[in-house]
Amino acid sequence: MLRAIPFGWLLAFVAVPCLLLLAIAFSATAEGVPPFAWGRFSLEAWATLTEDSFYLEAFLRSLRVAFTTAALCLALAFPMALALARAPARWQPALVLAVLLPFWTGFLLRMAAWVGLLRDQGWLNGVLLGLGLVEEPLPMLYSTPAMLLGMVHAYLPFAVLPLYATLLRLDRGLEEAAADLGASAFTVFRTITLPLAAPGAAAAFLLVFIPAAGEYVVPEMLGPPEAQLVGRALWGAFFQDRDWPLACLLAVLLLAVLVLPIRLFQRLENRP
């Protein structure tokens, strides 16, 4: 009976909404509220998607941005997590708190702060101009680097925490044994620490990759306007074009694309 509760929850809040989305995706558009006709089957949305390369490009661009974000987060998170796990035990709660501290400020506020820092009349350009290092403001905002900066800032804690947990569990005796058998500090890291932390690293990567693929706010606030991502395309279809079937199809497809990394993540979590 108790086991039925999670399944009931998943059925009500995951499976049923997904099926609703799918049903809307293959309905015909219509005038009115909501702007589609229940039960009138149509492949209109599917046809738009396959004919207009804009959507496929947005998908691929999103996956590329998510991959880059996850890779950057992993590269930054590994040394951070290692330093955390190796810090004296009495400092660790405070250091973990420092990693989580950004969450205490609103997400939108943090992204807006980047806008204030990076825009042409922003703080950074103000300093550069003031020091005479540049003649005119550097165009930093609304670029791919600015977007990646915001993405990494937003998602870094998600990468640090699983890695920290993994490295904390790692038996230091194994590293001592490797050193005792003649391995240099670097070889110990390469042959013992790194492989044993690999499941944690993969989990960290996926925990960033999965939400980053559908991210809408950061690219919208900091990213280049011309290169649209799937989140932006979805928003546009829903709110600007009022094409609900197309928006629903995009949402379901994004979920379908992410099923593979989600399954990978689950397999890592369930490893003994």
Partner: peptide, 29 residues
């Protein structure tokens, strides 16, 4: 450092490398 000393240690909980086979564990040194 330990790696430069001519001694070899057998650890209390054995400290066998869990991601390596028996062969690779023994071959490590």
């Amino acid at each position: 450092p330990p790696q430069a000393r001519p001694s070899a240690m057998v650890f209390q909980n054995y400290a066998l490398f869990p991601h390596l086979s028996v062969f690779d564990n023994v071959a490590y040194g």
